[in-house]
Nucleic acid binder design. Structure first.
Length: 468
RNA sequence: GGCGUGGUACCCAAGUGGCUUAAGGGAGCAGUCUGCAAAACUGCCAUUCAUCAGUUCGAAUCUGAUCCACGCCUCCA
């Protein structure tokens, strides 16, 4: 089965052909660890996880790298605006490294809860300062840089195809009402490679460089770390869709100018989670995290199931109503799995080729630019298929779950929570009433139990109790 | 001002020229079961794809216009 991926470079689905058959190189832009990840951020990491899982399912050996940005590279070019890492550290009176360490742990916990497979490396820019400086030097030697009063800048007019991937209309940008730019910048799209520390202030994190004390610019880390760990020319680079116009555009300009060869063959970008009116952003501080969902009683798998219902290149509307629908869907799916486990088949699947048909259909969907909604619909059809035995279904679904990652092989009967003695006594009393055909009393006891927060359900020869 | 995306049932959401008179999930409704419920199972649930016009033997899918919503151009997954 050929894997087709939508490449942002060409805006087309293309067959994926790796540079090296034995090892696919993949890099994704990870988090900046100055705050909690919200569920929108998690959507992107989920998308990258699906990509990784599909590559693995297809038998590729993937060398996967995701950076964790632990320095504030977010200083704006146009003003001396806040550096989010530094600001977060100052506010809490902690070291930048402590802030980074804390949010890195939370990030890792959240993606683990979502069952996102970790990369081989999680490089941090603070550990690759030399590589970043080396790359800036390389750009300087090739004549792509100039120095201003506040830093070393990349001259985008020197790079022939600047903005090609993003299809930037540079003249259009200049007419933009919201553009402000430093007088010293030669072109509106020029960006900092190295920023000098402010003269009157000591930053919490700063380093020596051939140009002066300061810190690396926003984009150089990915170019430098990608080069260090994966080489000059890699197969796949991915991230959120917002990275196309600036971050990834600049990465291409840096890497290709310095290395003198093509940087990335396939660029993949995940769409945003749409929060409706309330745009969820870190700056607004109104974001929902994994912990928020857990506190509201959802499981991380409910959210994963929710994400699987939409294609990664389409905006997905988040509402709690939609999440409830996903939670119900995941619960129903789980129950089907449990049932398959307990069923003992009397025979074998008569037509083994039918199993192969489902496998092919599933594979075709995931290989068609990661069409998970359709892949999920194949799973549901398989569950309802009468001509395949439960044992075979279960085996096949576990195989599919290597891609969907819903932890289906870990599903267990819900462990009944401790039921207070009082409730148990009431339940027994109700059974007695039922035996005596005193249904009125039985119903009264049922509603009493419900008032106390438990639900009773009759079974063939008894009852079950559940906390509501 | 420039660039770009999308409008598919009650909700979420696939499908981008004939295999589809539109997947899948949720909700809802009906039935089976049950003293009644719950659960489970079975069945039903868009002749229609924002609107209008056009191209075509054939369109939700292509073209044009219109209306609406949204994103980016500033940090953002």
């Amino acid at each position: 089965m050929k894997l087709k991926l939508f490449n942002t470079l060409t805006r087309k689905k293309e067959e994926f052909i790796p540079i090296n058959k034995d090892e696919v190189s993949m890099y994704s832009c990870g988090p900046t660890v100055y705050n909690y990840m919200h569920i929108g951020n998690l959507r992107t990491f989920f998308f990258e996880d699906i990509l990784l899982r599909v590559l693995k399912y297809d038998g590729f050996n993937v060398k996967y790298v995701m950076n964790i940005t632990d320095i504030g590279h977010l200083v704006s070019d146009s003003d001396e605006g806040e550096d989010k890492m530094e600001q977060s550290a100052k506010e809490s009176g902690k070291k930048v490294s402590e802030i980074a360490g804390y949010y890195t742990d939370v990030f890792k916990r959240d993606v683990d809860l979502l069952n996102v497979i970790p990369p081989l490396y999680y490089p941090k820019p603070t550990e690759y300062i030399d590589e970043q400086i080396a790359m800036i030097k390389c750009l300087e030697e090739k004549g792509f840089t100039y120095v201003t009063s506040d830093g070393v800048y990349y001259d985008t007019s020197k790079f022939p195809d600047y903005g090609k991937m993003a299809r930037l209309d540079i003249k259009g940008l200049q007419e933009g009402a919201r553009i402000e730019y430093s007088e010293e910048k030669k072109n509106i799209t020029d960006f900092a490679l190295w920023k000098f520390s402010p003269k009157n202030e000591k930053r919490l994190s700063e380093w020596n460089s051939p140009w002066g004390i300061g810190f690396p610019g926003w984009h150089i880390e990915c170019s430098a770390m990608s080069k260090a760990l994966l080489g000059n020319h890699i197969d796949i680079h991915c991230g959120g869709i917002d990275h196309i116009p600036v971050h990834h555009t600049n990465e291409i300009a840096q890497s290709e100018a310095c290395n003198g060869e093509k940087f990335v063959n396939y660029w993949l970008h995940g769409e945003f989670l749409d929060m409706g009116n309330e745009k969820m952003s870190k700056s607004l501080g109104n974001f929902i995290t994994m912990q928020t969902l857990i506190d509201k009683g959802y499981s991380p798998m409910d959210y994963r199931y929710f994400l699987l219902m939409a294609h990664y290149r389409k905006k997905l509307k988040f509402t709690f109503e939609a999440l409830d629908a996903a939670a119900s869907g995941y619960k129903n799916l789980s129950q089907r799995i449990l049932k398959l486990k307990t069923e003992i088949d009397s025979g074998n699947t008569f037509d083994k080729s039918l199993i192969e048909t489902y496998r092919e259909r599933f594979s075709a969907k995931i290989n068609d630019d990661l069409n998970m909604p359709e892949a999920m619909s194949v799973i549901w059809e398989l569950l309802k298929e009468e001509k395949i035995t439960s044992a075979d279904k279960l085996e096949l679904i576990y195989e599919f779950d290597k891609v969907t990652g819903l932890r289906l092989n870990e599903i267990k009967e819900e462990i009944p929570s401790e039921i207070p003695e009082e409730i148990q006594k009431l339940a027994v009393k109700r059974i007695d009433a039922k035996k005596k055909k005193d249904f009125k009393l039985a119903d009264e006891i049922r509603s009493l139990i419900k008032e106390k927060g438990y639900e009773i359900a009759d079974t063939k020869d008894g009852f079950t109790l559940k906390k509501i």
